[in-house]
């Protein structure tokens, strides 16, 4: 079984290695394809990943310039034809800027970069990204962002909730979703949302950094194992 994954590299992307390590861990060491942002076509893939980093230095708005990259037309077409896309951190910001996911990621409410462990509650298990988890399961993940404060208008938030598109929420170690356990001010403690067809996921924290107990945890591993189980030919 092998998952054909591709990681898109924008100028300023910096977590592509972390993502490649996580994918290699569940695919028997297979290296994902590395795709340059100036390319216009994707090779045959089961999964496209937009990894974390500071594309274009975050100098305009996080993800805004990357969303205009030549490769994003191909990524949009890929998703429109039913392809699976994972955007983590800056990747989530790019998906939001590209209009592939609703909402926006604003400056953290505390106005500081957050680099720390935090907990997430799994809200949906009927996606390829979350099928490896149990509903309500609590994960420990790495946060590393300055702009992770998820924002959308109330109507959009209600629609996302109604359609079951909130995949992860920030929570305490016990799974309680509270204002105190919301690290960056995100609306309704939302950490990750999916597209209407559940095939595009954006989330701020980094499950790819916890796939090996040696590096401090493996709560992210079920996401990648679930992807292989669902998507590998």
């Amino acid at each position: 079984m092998s998952l054909r994954a591709g990681i898109v590299i924008f100028p300023g992307t910096n977590r592509e290695r972390d993502m490649a390590i996580a994918l290699a861990r569940v695919t028997g060491g297979r290296s994902p394809a590395m795709i340059w942002h100036k390319d216009t076509d994707l090779p045959p893939l089961d999964l496209v990943v937009l990894p974390g980093g500071f594309s274009h230095g975050d100098y305009l708005r996080c993800g805004a310039m990357a969303a205009q990259s030549p490769i994003m037309r191909a990524v949009r077409d890929f998703a429109a034809s039913g392809g699976y896309v994972l955007g983590v951190c800056n990747g989530f910001q790019i998906l939001a800027e590209a209009g592939m996911l609703p909402g926006a990621l604003l400056r953290n409410a505390g106005l500081r970069f957050l680099a720390q462990d935090h907990h997430l509650r799994v809200e949906r298990t009927d996606t390829v990204f979350t099928r490896g988890y149990a509903e309500g399961e609590v994960l420990r993940v790495v946060l590393a962002h300055g702009d992770g404060n998820y924002f959308a208008d109330e109507a959009t938030l209600d629609r996302l909730e109604g359609e079951g598109r909130v995949a992860f929420r920030y929570c305490g170690p016990d799974g309680a979703v509270t204002p105190e356990a919301n690290p960056n001010g995100s609306a309704r403690s939302i950490a990750g949302v999916t597209s209407a067809n559940r095939r595009v996921l954006g989330l701020m924290p980094h499950p790819e950094d916890y796939v090996d107990p040696l590096m401090g945890g493996e709560d992210g591993l079920p996401m990648f194992e679930g992807l292989v189980g669902a998507l590998a030919a």
Binding site: R15, D18, I21, A115, Q116, D209, L214, M215
Partner: peptide
């Protein structure tokens, strides 16, 4: 922690011991 929590210690996926976890930081070689 107030300082460390503003520094990304995990990027690269090789950090075995982060600040405060050991007397020296431990970073694996890929």
């Amino acid at each position: 922690a107030w300082i460390w929590n503003q520094y990304d210690a995990a990027v690269g996926g090789q950090t075995v011991k982060r600040p405060g976890a050991a007397d020296a930081a431990i970073v694996k070689i890929d």
